[in-house]
Amino acid sequence: MNTMIIKNARIVTATEEFTGSMVVEGGIIRQMDRGETSALGAEDWQGDWLLPGLVELHTDNLEKHLVPRPGVLWNAHSATVMHDALCAAAGITTVLDSVVIGDMDQGGTRSQTQHVSIEALHECREEGLLRVEHLLHLRCEVSAPDIVEVFEQYADDSLLELVSVMDHTPGQRQWRDLAKYRRYAERYGSFNEAEYEAMIAERRTHQEQYATPNRAAVIAGSLARDLPVASHDDTEIEHVEQATAEGIAISEFPTTVAAAKAARAAGMGIVMGSPNLVKGGSHSGNVSAAELAQLDLLDIFSSDYVPASLLQSAFLLRTVAGWSLPKAVATVTRNPTRAIGLMDRGELAPGLRADLIRVRMSGGMPIVRACWHKGERAF
């Protein structure tokens, strides 16, 4: 049975930070102690931080590897392995790959990648090609005509751990500002005025026809399978009230302070994007993660589209919001695991899985020097 002994590490638990030692055996944390150790063969970490492996509930990073340029579809196995390596280098040891199902752009990129990405995820796991643990998060576009059909295809997938319901129809939620929406929609090419108006009209028509029944079907199917559900881009208090009435326990990327306050009052877990904090604001003009953190209206960070931002955001919370390091680290470790019921990881404690990262500050940024998954070196 493999044994690893670490000494002189700044250990960050769920409640405190101290310099001490750790013993890992058989992929499990067996012992933690304060101060020095005289154990033979102990590795001296020279005061580097010892943190739990990071936990990612929602990342679009795989999609960036699947579609590296507009119109270019990359081999799904290659994309999955490279995405996995980047997660390990960022200190992420549990990652829920978020796959969008229900494509608002019929025949668009996501409709071409949704099936191959899930298939590749399974095959890469089975072949032992992945450094860290990859699970599945289905992001369900409720205004898409085909969403219920595709959801039912994957609702019993063995890797599925989270479902989110979202509606990106222009003019509401994330895209209240139509000018910002147009800039986003034209990132791969411009529309003339007639094309743009026709696209807006079509998406609003689909919302009127499909959003309500599709949302109800996806939520009912998820809860019947005991799958946690997140409501995406809550903006109005009414959005949160609807979500809680539906049995949803996670508010993912609320766009306003009012929605976040309503989510907190309802006991929902509040998820924000870590790039929002690192970059100083939302790219779509919504509420800043810093403001929510300062109001203590933030529980979980997601790296969204930049894996390295997850660790950065935890350390930034100390200066931006005055949080202790244990409280800040919990947003990227313990809190996300508890939100989806993974109780064997997410913090440093005897008996839990040895998902660990070694971190040192360089140039004012936390840098992952090494990463272990189940006690095995992943980076």
Rank of each mutant, 00 (worst) to 15 (best):
I219Q: 01
M22G: 07
A265C: 05
P326W: 06
T256D: 04
M343R: 10
M343T: 14
E16Y: 08
I357M: 02
H206G: 04
V332T: 13
G47R: 00
V72C: 04
A249C: 06
A85H: 14
D233P: 08
L136F: 10
C371M: 13
G107H: 12
D299A: 06
R183G: 09
M4G: 08
G53Y: 04
H232C: 11
L227R: 11
E127R: 12
A263R: 00
P275K: 05
D60R: 02
T59H: 10
L96W: 02
I237F: 07
L295C: 08
T319P: 03
A88N: 01
Q172T: 09
V132T: 11
W323I: 07
M365Y: 07
D84C: 08
I340E: 01
T93P: 12
G281M: 01
E193M: 10
M22A: 15
A290F: 02
R264W: 07
T113R: 08
R125K: 15
L66N: 01
P213L: 09
Q294E: 15
Y181S: 05
S78G: 14
V142W: 01
I250E: 05
L298W: 07
V100D: 01
V148I: 05
Q242T: 15
F315K: 04
M361A: 12
A290I: 04
H134K: 08
A265L: 05
P366S: 08
R345A: 02
L356R: 03
E347T: 15
L317K: 03
V142D: 00
T113V: 15
V271F: 00
A258F: 09
A328R: 11
V95N: 01
P275R: 03
P326M: 13
A90E: 03
V150D: 02
L136T: 11
V278R: 03
G375E: 09
G41E: 01
K374N: 15
N8R: 02
I357D: 00
R334P: 07
N75F: 03
K180W: 06
D304T: 11
I270K: 01
I147F: 05
T331R: 11
E347Y: 08
R139Q: 06
A120L: 04
E36L: 05
I118V: 12
A378L: 06
E186T: 12
A89L: 11
H122Q: 14
E238I: 12
P228T: 10
N2Q: 14
G351D: 01
R110Q: 14
I300S: 00
A370S: 13
E43C: 10
D304S: 08
N192Y: 10
L352T: 04
A259I: 00
L277V: 04
D97M: 06
V229F: 00
E126D: 14
D304R: 06
G108E: 02
V229P: 00
S98T: 10
T212F: 10
I11V: 15
A90D: 03
S274N: 00
E149P: 05
